[in-house]
């Protein structure tokens, strides 16, 4: 029997029970770390599990559980509050402005290849952006540094134009390979910016020393600029030269934010829960360390060591 969509959705309670089981299993797993049968330090290789990574497993399970819990809650229809991200709220305005001015929109997906999660996040965002652009009948220009990124970007944009009902507007040559060399790529994109004078520039992905060269050139022509990267050293440059900057996690949240799809939004809420867990541990760790140094209490020291061990 084919189940209706609503019946196929897992019930939040059943998921909570499954999550509880997973946490219990994790606890048993960690307890077994005391034995030599299953676990091994990396130097002995006597077991299958790398005990040096127990903390990563525990934190991974906790964070994954939090994200999955919110995905299921969102899928079950529970309304979730997602804070506004100014840079993403402006996307449609930037595209509209470019359409009014009759100028193209430049999208730079960064320097990394498809084996980098930032590039995957950028491609997901490109898909949403291309759908908006197709609706406005504006022109999208995507110069890329890696051939694989070009192939993925072409597929993604073509699909977006199809889903927007504008397959005729898709121009394959507007997404093209430039050069693998970092500064050759930067020079080419600068040239495109100066010659075509796009009304909106998007720099989303992994960037290095060329970030400011690109963003300042875009700034010099008066384009609306939205940037985002998960490379902290480049963030100040984008903040100084762009109108909006997606800082770190916001780049990964962008696709889910723009999609408005409940399960995607649920994963964003899960991220926030993960941040909450991190804050609790940081505060607890700081308080315990302070308490330990003040009182010298043995129990406090042991608890403090457990928190320290988790983040070692």
């Amino acid at each position: 029997m084919r189940l209706s969509p609503s019946r196929r959705k897992p019930h939040p309670d059943s998921f909570a029970i499954a999550l509880l089981r997973a946490v219990l299993a994790c606890t048993v797993f960690v307890a077994m770390a005391q034995t030599d049968l299953l676990f091994a330090q990396t130097d002995t290789e006597s077991g299958w599990f790398n005990a040096d990574r127990t903390q990563a497993l525990v934190l991974g399970i906790v964070l994954t559980g939090a994200i999955l819990l919110y995905v299921v809650l969102a899928a079950s229809g529970r309304p979730l509050f997602i804070r506004k991200i100014a840079g993403l709220e402006t996307v449609e305005e930037a595209v509209g402005r470019a359409t009014e001015m009759g100028k193209p929109i430049l999208y730079v997906p960064g320097l990394n290849d498809m084996d980098e999660v930032q590039t995957i996040a950028s491609m997901n965002l490109l898909g949403h952006l291309a759908t908006i652009i197709a609706g406005y009948d504006s022109r999208l220009h995507v110069p890329v540094r890696k051939s694989l990124v070009m192939s993925v970007a072409r597929e993604t944009v073509q699909q977006s134009y199809l889903s927007a009902g504008r397959p005729d507007a898709y121009q394959e040559d507007d997404i093209h390979y430039v050069s693998d060399a970092q500064f050759a790529y930067a020079a080419a994109v600068d040239g495109i910016i100066v010659r075509e004078r796009p009304a909106a520039c998007f720099y989303l992905g992994g960037f290095y020393a060329e970030s400011l060269i690109l963003a300042e050139t875009g700034n010099s022509i008066g384009a609306i600029q939205i940037a985002g990267t998960a490379r902290p050293p480049q963030l100040p440059f984008f903040v100084a030269a762009c109108d909006y900057t997606l800082i770190g996690e916001e780049l990964f949240a962008a696709s889910a934010y723009l999609s408005k799809e409940p399960r995607m939004l649920g994963s964003l809420k899960g991220q926030d829960a993960g941040k909450g867990i991190a804050i609790v541990f940081i505060l607890a760790g700081s308080a315990l360390a302070t308490l330990e140094s003040v009182t010298g209490n043995e129990t406090v020291r042991e608890v403090s060591q457990i928190v320290l061990w988790l983040f070692r």
Binding site: G60, L63, T64, I67, L68, V117, I120, A121, A230, P232, L235, I247, G248, E249, E250, L251, F252, A253, A256, M264, S267, L268, G270, Q271, G274, K275, A278
Partner: peptide, 15 residues
């Protein structure tokens, strides 16, 4: 920022 990025990477990978 790094903690936020790590959480973002985990969430994106899971998605």
């Amino acid at each position: 920022i790094m903690i936020g990025i790590a959480l973002g990477v985990i969430a994106t990978s899971l998605r």
